[in-house]
C-alpha cells in the first residue's frame, strides 16, 4: 500500500514533467527534462525552511499535512473501488487546501491566490453534473459497479461523451498552465504557494503528484473501464499529452471569465442531463 502510494507520487510527478515538456516543445522551447518535477520535490526537501514571521503557524503547517492526507485517502478509495462521491468530495476540498496555503502566510500574493481559488470554486460544479449523468446510466456511484457496467455495455466514453468532456474540463482546470488555472497565474508570483517554500513546497509537490495520478486514474476508470495497469499507465500518459495540447493552445482566461465559461458549460451539461433523463 505504502509502496503503491510512493509509486503514485513519483508517477504523478512524472506526468506533470511530461506536461511541462510537451508544452515546451509545442512552444519551440527545449523545456526541462521529464523528471524535472521529481527532482524539484527532492530539491525542495533539502532547502532551508522556516515559517514566515507573520504566518498563522498551525494552519500554515497543518494544511500541508491535510493536503497529502486527503489525496492519499482519495487514492485508497479509488483502489478499493469505493464511492466516486468521496473522491469528488476530496477534489472539492482541495479548494480548502488552496485557501489554507494562500491565506495562512499573510502574504498579499498568497492572499490573491486564495481569493482566486474561492472565485474558481464555481468551476467544480460541472463535475457533479457529469457524476449525475454517469449515475443515471450505472445506477450506482461505486467505482467497482461502474467498472462492471462498462465490462458489459462498453466504455462510458462512447455512451455519454459530453459527460466525459465535462470531466475532462474539470481535470484541465486543475492542470498547471491551463486556460482555467487562474489560481496560479504569473501575475500572482506563484499564487497560493508563494509563501510555502522549501520543505512545505516539497510536501505540496507530493500532494500534486498524488492529485494528478488520482484524477487521471479516475477519468480512465470511470469512462473507459478497468484495464490492466500497464495500459492504465500508458492511457494516463496519453491523457496528459492531450491535456498539454489543450493547455498550450489556449490562453489563460481572466478570472471571472473563466468562471463564466465554466458555468455556461455547466448549463449545457444540465440540459444534456435533463434530455438524457427524459429519454432514459
Amino acid at each position: 500500500m505504502i509502496g503503491y502510494l510512493l509509486f503514485a507520487v513519483v508517477f504523478g510527478l512524472l506526468l506533470l514533467g511530461i506536461h511541462r515538456k510537451v508544452i515546451a516543445r509545442i512552444q519551440r522551447r527545449p523545456g526541462p527534462p521529464v523528471w524535472q518535477e521529481i527532482l524539484h520535490m527532492l530539491k525542495f526537501s533539502f532547502k532551508s525552511t522556516w515559517i514566515p514571521a507573520t504566518a498563522s503557524n498551525i494552519l500554515f503547517v497543518g494544511v500541508v499535512l491535510v493536503a497529502i492526507g486527503i489525496w492519499s485517502a482519495a487514492l485508497f478509495v479509488l483502489l478499493a473501488g469505493g464511492s466516486i462521491l468521496i473522491i469528488f468530495g476530496i477534489y472539492m476540498l482541495h479548494k480548502i487546501v488552496e485557501h489554507g496555503f494562500g491565506l495562512s502566510s499573510g502574504s498579499p500574493y498568497g492572499k490573491f491566490g486564495g481569493v482566486r481559488s474561492v472565485i474558481s470554486a464555481a468551476s467544480e460544479i460541472p463535475l457533479f453534473v457529469s457524476v449525475a449523468v454517469v449515475a443515471l446510466y450505472t445506477q450506482s456511484l461505486e467505482i467497482s459497479s461502474i467498472v462492471q457496467y462498462q465490462a458489459i455495455h462498453g466504455p462510458l466514453l462512447f455512451i455519454v461523451p459530453l459527460a466525459a468532456i465535462a470531466m475532462y474540463i474539470v481535470i484541465l482546470s486543475k492542470m498547471p498552465f491551463g486556460p482555467f488555472s487562474i489560481v496560479e497565474s504569473k501575475e500572482l508570483v506563484s499564487g497560493y504557494k508563494t509563501e510555502h517554500f522549501g520543505v512545505w513546497r516539497a510536501g505540496l509537490e507530493i500532494c500534486n503528484g498524488l492529485k494528478t495520478y488520482v484524477l487521471m486514474f479516475m477519468f480512465i476508470t470511470v469512462f473507459i473501464g478497468g484495464i490492466p495497469i500497464w495500459w492504465m499507465l500508458a492511457g494516463m500518459i496519453l491523457l496528459t499529452v492531450s491535456l498539454s495540447f489543450a493547455c498550450a493552445f489556449s490562453p489563460m482566461l481572466s478570472p471571472f471569465d473563466s468562471v463564466t465559461v465554466q458555468m455556461l458549460i455547466t448549463g449545457v451539461m444540465l440540459g444534456y442531463a435533463a434530455v438524457l433523463g427524459v429519454i432514459a
Binding site: S45, S48, W50, P52, V189
Partner: peptide, 19 residues
C-alpha cells in the same frame, strides 16, 4: 514525510516576513 524533510533539510535561518 514532512518531519523527515524538516530533519534532513539545510541549516535553518531565522524567520522572515513574506515576499
Amino acid at each position: 514525510v514532512i518531519c523527515l524533510f524538516l530533519w534532513w533539510m539545510a541549516r535553518e535561518h531565522g524567520e522572515d516576513i513574506p515576499f
